Simulated assay, not measured.
Amino acid sequence: MLISDILKRYNQGDRDFREINLSKSNLSGMNLSYANLSRSKLTEAHLAWSDLQRCFLLESDLRGAFLYGANLSFVKLKEALLVGADLTKADLKGAQLHKVNLQGATLSGAVLNWVSLYMANLPGVNLCGANLEGINLRGANLERANLNWTNLNGARLSGANLRGAKLYGIKLKGAFLNGLDLHGVNFSAMDLEETKMSGMKLYGSNFSGSNLQSAFMRRSVLDKANLKNVVLNQGQLKGAQFVQANLMKSDLSETDLRMADLSFTNLNLVNLRGADLTNANLHGAYLWSACLDGAIVKGANFTGANLRDADLSGTDLSDAILTGATMPDGKIHV
């Protein structure tokens, strides 16, 4: 069908163009908003700056399509093929992209806030600098994806595959990352306030200087992680594992650390005022000049820990295990 025929039908009020073949057609700058193009062939079509808002493109073939700057807001793209498509600076706000194949697609600078990419296939996709606030990426395949400088505040990433993904300079405030394996990743100086990171593998990761206030990290593994000078006050870290981690000078005030494993951890100069360390394991931990004023340490294991010059005022040690611990005055507890 000729493009002129499509425009004529569209201007006459027709919106049904299902299963149409527009491969390699030049539709740049055209207004086809609200049209139904489901199961259509648009491979390598030129759609730069076109208006496709609220269109139906269900199961359509857009492989290699050029969609630079296109308006795709609230479009329905469920199970569409966008392999190798160029979506640079495209507006995909509120779009539905369930199970869409975006392998090798370019989405640099695209607007993707509040988009659903549930279980989408995105290996190697370029999302550098994209606005992904509130995006649903649960179960999505983002292996080797370029996520540098993306805004992922409030994003849902639980169950996503991020192996080999580039994550430099990303924003993750309030994001859902539960259960992910991001060990060794550099999270330094990031705003991770209220981020959901429970059950994660984060051993060897770098969080130095980051804001983790009120973060959820229950049962996460952070062995040998660098958490120096982080803000973790009022965090939820019940059952988390910090073996040999560095938490020096960090703020852990009023943090829930019940049953956490902090053995051989560097907690020098840490603020643990009002923290709950019930049944926590601090065997061999370093707590030089740490503040534990008002901390709950019932059943906590301080065996062999160093508490030299620590502030224990307002702390009830009667139910704590202190065998072999160096007390604030330098004496060894027997």
Rank of each mutant, 00 (worst) to 15 (best):
D5F: 08
I6N: 09
F17L: 12
G29E: 10
S38A: 12
L47P: 05
C55S: 14
E59V: 14
L62I: 11
R63N: 06
L67A: 12
Y68A: 08
A70C: 08
V75W: 02
G84K: 05
G84H: 07
D86S: 05
L87Y: 08
L87C: 12
Q96G: 13
K99N: 15
V100D: 02
G104E: 03
L112I: 10
W114F: 12
L117K: 03
Y118S: 07
L122A: 01
N131Q: 13
L132C: 09
N153E: 15
R163A: 11
K171P: 00
G179K: 00
V185E: 04
F187T: 00
A189S: 12
L192P: 04
K201E: 15
G204Y: 02
G204N: 08
S214M: 10
M217D: 02
R219N: 08
K224E: 10
K228L: 05
K228D: 03
L232A: 12
G235E: 06
M248Q: 11
K249T: 10
S250A: 05
L252F: 02
E254D: 12
T265Y: 01
L267V: 03
N268I: 00
N281Y: 05
L287H: 02
D293Q: 10
I296T: 04
V297P: 00
G304C: 10
N306M: 08
G314V: 05
T315K: 11
S318T: 15
A320H: 07
A320E: 08
T323Q: 15
T326S: 06
G330A: 04
K331M: 13
